[in-house]
Amino acid sequence: MIITINGQSETLDQATLSIADLLKIKNVEMPEMVSVEYNGDILDRSVFNSTSVKDGDVIEFLYFMGGGRHSRSVYEF
């Protein structure tokens, strides 16, 4: 399926996956530091596992910023 992550179109091999899975495959090391905007709405952290990603979704990873360290640049557009 093809989704848009952080403004960029990406083709994923998986047929189904959750937001939590997506954070993993996108190598987000500290998901606690990320808010996820899913098709325009901020997702509650409690639904990361139960929300599945589908073709055409627009997803933004929005990072806390203002202290702390990340293993990689947080916004790689």
């Binding site: 500290m30 606690e32 530091m33 808010s35 905007e37 901020i42 509650d44 952290r45 929005l62 806390f64 202290g67 702390g68 360290r69 990340h70």
Partner: peptide, 14 residues
């Protein structure tokens, strides 16, 4: 956007 501060242990040392 960010409902609450990140958990304390998630904030790396300064």
């Amino acid at each position: 956007v960010f409902k609450e501060p990140p958990p304390k242990n998630a904030v790396p040392t300064c």
